[in-house]
Simulated scan of single mutants.
Amino acid sequence: MPPAIRRLAIFAICLFGLIYLFRSRRSTDIPGAPGYRPVQKIFDEEEQSLAHAQHSYTKIRGQKNLAISPTAPLRDRLRYQFPYDLRRSFPAYIWQTWKYTPASSEFIDDLRVTEASWTELHPLFTHEVIPDETQRRLIQYLYGSVPDVFEAYDSLPLPVMKADFFRYLVLLARGGIYSDIDTLALKPAGYWLPEELDRSTVGFMVGIEADPDRPDWHDWYSRRIQFCQWTIVSKPGHPILRDMVAYVTEEALRMKKAGILKVGKMDKTIMELGGKNITYEDFSNQVERRKVGDVVVLPITSFSPGVGQMNAGDTDHPLAFVKHNFDGTWKTDPSL
Results as ranks from 00 to 15, higher is better:
D148F: 00
A92P: 08
P318E: 01
S117W: 09
L124N: 08
D216T: 04
E251D: 10
V263F: 13
Y20G: 01
P318A: 00
S89K: 04
S117N: 05
E272W: 14
N311Q: 07
R137D: 15
W220H: 11
A53T: 13
I42G: 04
E46A: 11
G274T: 09
E151S: 08
L158I: 05
L156R: 05
E120D: 10
D148L: 00
K99P: 11
S284E: 11
R223Y: 14
Y221L: 00
L261A: 06
M271R: 11
D294F: 00
E209H: 12
D85Y: 15
D44K: 04
S69Q: 00
D243T: 03
I300K: 00
V297Q: 04
A67W: 15
K256Y: 11
P123W: 07
R223M: 07
E45D: 12
V287L: 11
G32C: 02
L193V: 05
M1I: 07
L261Y: 13
M310K: 00
I300A: 03
T201C: 14
W230D: 08
E272I: 02
Q96N: 10
Q63V: 11
F107V: 01
A258N: 10
G328Y: 13
I139S: 04
F22D: 11
I13Y: 15
L171C: 02
P188V: 03
T332Y: 13
I181H: 14
Q229P: 06
I60W: 13
A51I: 15
P73M: 02
H52A: 09
I5G: 07
E128F: 11
L336Y: 15
V248K: 04
I240W: 13
A53P: 14
P2E: 11
A92E: 11
L319C: 03
Y20V: 07
R88W: 15
M1S: 08
H52E: 14
R112E: 08
K257C: 06
P2H: 13
S69T: 00
A163G: 07
P3S: 03
I177Y: 10
D267Y: 13
W220E: 09
Q96G: 10
H52W: 13
Q309S: 03
A173V: 06
D219E: 08
L124D: 09
F150G: 02
L253Q: 03
I177Q: 06
V245Q: 02
P131E: 13
I130P: 04
L319K: 02
G313C: 01
F11G: 07
M244F: 15
V287G: 11
D76W: 07
P215G: 12
W217Q: 09
E195V: 07
H317G: 03
I225A: 05
Y36N: 02
R6I: 12
V322N: 00
P188Y: 11
V287S: 15
Y191R: 10
E250D: 09
K291I: 03
T332K: 03
I30L: 09
P73N: 06
H218P: 01
N311V: 03
G203N: 12
R77T: 03
A185M: 10
I177C: 06
A173C: 09
E272K: 04
M266T: 12
Y20L: 06
D267I: 07
K291M: 02
I19Q: 09
V263G: 06
G35Q: 08
T329V: 10
A53G: 08
S56H: 14
V146D: 08
Y93N: 07
Y168D: 10
T101N: 03
T101W: 09
I278A: 05
H127N: 09
W98Y: 10
A189T: 13
A53M: 12
I270Q: 05
W220P: 01
Q226L: 05
S105G: 04
K235L: 02
